[in-house]
Design a protein around this nucleic acid. Structure first.
Lengths: 150, 150
DNA sequence: AAAACTGTAACTTTTTTTATTACTAAATAA
DNA sequence: TTATTTAGTAATAAAAAAAGTTACAGTTTT
């Protein structure tokens, strides 16, 4: 009897690409430039010099947000599912789960120290304001605007 | 004959702490709270739950910018060298070499693709504007303001 | 002279990111 | 109807980055 892998993944493992926003914007710009074609992950990966599997993972996220659609099989690929003039970079920003900020120390600070106890909370307030300002900025740039620069 | 290490380091190796800004702000807040004491790296590390050597490395950077001073030897440590009401978080931001942004894809994009060729340049323009807005925000917060929250 | 610090080099370990391999499923075209 | 191309995704491996550790020279203070 042949053992067949059951094609199930219990461990939810998702590569956390460091530049998710940059990668998503790159993908979306390409799709905007070729609005009538289904672009393959291989082609997109070629423009980004990135592994095609990682491109497909990012596309999976964009698909979950219904801004692109894919077609499997020969001549398959991905194309834009929305109007580039209607999609703002703020929406892309939110889809990539990214947050602006200047980081937190990795370890949990000492709760017995008055500073340690509240440092992350106070930094969070500072960073929240940053996010608000950045969101306003990104809300003014549509994918069409951004793509028109190329 | 005993071999003695020559106390020279040719390879410039500097741990690139991910939350340099957060760590520096934490250190500076502690120094502001205890303006009359030289705080040891051990003490600071205890509040941050971080290795003392890493604290000393961050302090080295702050020293290079002349905003703190250290004293070696017994009862030594670090204290603020400037007025907390004169130092803004924008200055700290700049000292930690941090830049706001949403990242770049790690690999160099394909220069033969019109999008790959210009993607980083166009993202940089976007990010530059973000930095400007964030700088304006941080310029309004002094170390004294921030520390007063604790 | 002992003790308590800073400063910093040289590793080591851990964690995070990125890449690869492998295979299922789907769609197309010859 | 069969070969081919493509998406989707699991599992693993490799590479890179971050954090931690050890060790010790040099400084002050007591």
């Amino acid at each position: 009897m042949l053992y067949k892998t059951p094609y199930i993944c219990n461990i939810i493992y998702y590569s956390m690409l460091s530049g998710k926003f940059a990668i998503s914007v790159h993908i979306l710009t390409l799709l905007t430039k070729f609005p009538n074609d289904y672009l393959s992950s291989e082609f997109i990966a070629g423009s980004m010099n990135l592994n095609p599997v990682l491109v497909r993972k990012e596309i999976a996220n964009l698909k979950a947000h219904h801004i692109v659609e894919s077609k499997e099989g020969k001549n398959g690929g991905t194309k834009l599912a929305v109007d580039a003039s209607k999609l703002t970079l703020k929406e892309v920003f939110e889809m990539t789960f990214e947050k602006i900020g200047l980081g937190y120390a990795k370890n949990q600070p000492n709760p017995d120290c008055p500073v340690g106890k509240k440092i992350n909370e106070n930094l969070a307030v500072l960073y929240a304001e940053m996010n608000q300002k950045v969101s306003l900025q990104l809300n003014d740039v549509t994918l069409e605007d951004f793509s028109a620069q190329f």
